[in-house]
């Protein structure tokens, strides 16, 4: 038996919104420690790694580990019908063929029950090694969204160059070029609004703009985002979710021939 209850539907809505455009279907791996999902986009260039820790749920029970193959679009559509403050309980029998969803309003005067058919998802599981990153940039997630959106009007690749002085995002396209530099915040009252740049080694790497734009749509998950870059490893973009876990995106670079 698997059962997981979140106090407020809002967080699940935000999580599903952030992954469902990138990932059509995936396996929710449910175990005693929580729920995880690892899925690549269809071109195998980017990967979503989601972790929802058991302690982040109001109630959590998973007697034996199970894989729930889910169409993320279908799940997203159903969860969207819940009120933001509704409690949501996910459930599945050990050998069941459906994922049950129960929404309960805060007043307990409305209860909705849905079932989604499970599917066989033949997803390749990749082993993600723990990487040593040369650069870690923490910045407001809204700023990251703005920068990727603004540069996407010009070019399909963004070069991210980072030194101790700042991080530069630049692009070139048929119509011209553009670049945006962010400098480390000198003094900030609100830590969430700070730009913090940690540099072991300066680095410059190119990435496909369209994926950065996709990732940056997760801004609702956290006011801050971290970009982790290293030579010979994919970019890792992380949106932490307090006690709940995280959504991480990995993106392979574009290399010059």
């Amino acid at each position: 038996m698997f059962e997981a209850r979140v106090a407020q539907a809002e967080i699940l809505k935000k999580i599903l919104d952030s992954v469902r455009e990138l990932v059509e279907q995936g396996n929710l791996d449910c175990s005693g420690t929580g729920i995880s999902l690892q899925a690549m986009d269809s071109s195998h260039v980017s990967l979503v790694a989601l972790l929802l820790k058991s302690e982040g749920f109001e109630r959590y029970r998973c007697d034996r580990s199970i894989n729930l193959g889910i169409n993320m679009q279908s799940l997203g559509k159903i969860v969207k019908t819940a009120g933001n403050h509704d409690a949501i309980t996910l459930s599945s029998e050990d050998k069941g063929d459906v994922l049950g969803l129960m929404f309960e309003s805060t007043e307990q005067d409305k209860v909705s029950n849905y079932e989604i058919k499970l599917m066989d998802v033949d997803a390749e599981q990749l082993a993600i090694p723990v990487a040593e990153y040369s650069v870690c940039v923490r910045m407001p997630s809204a700023e990251f969204a703005r920068i990727t959106r603004d540069l996407s009007t010009i070019g399909d690749s963004v070069l991210i160059s980072c030194t101790k002085d700042g991080v530069q995002f630049s692009t070139t396209g048929d119509t011209g070029s553009g670049s945006i530099v962010l400098r480390q915040s000198s003094s900030v009252d609100d830590e969430k609004k700070a730009v913090v740049i940690e540099v072991q080694e300066p680095i410059s790497l190119s990435f496909a703009t369209k994926f950065l734009v996709q990732f940056s749509k997760s801004a609702a998950l956290n006011e801050s985002v971290t970009l982790n870059l290293g030579d010979g490893v994919p970019l890792m973009v992380e949106y932490p979710m307090k006690e709940m876990g995280y959504v991480r995106f990995y993106l392979a670079p574009k290399l010059s021939n």
Binding site: H44, L126, P129, S157, G232, P234, Y250, K254
Partner: peptide
């Protein structure tokens, strides 16, 4: 000219 690398070149299969 840039070439898009795939993730498999970095991450092994489990």
């Amino acid at each position: 000219v840039c070439r898009q690398i795939q993730l498999k070149q970095y991450f092994g299969q489990e």
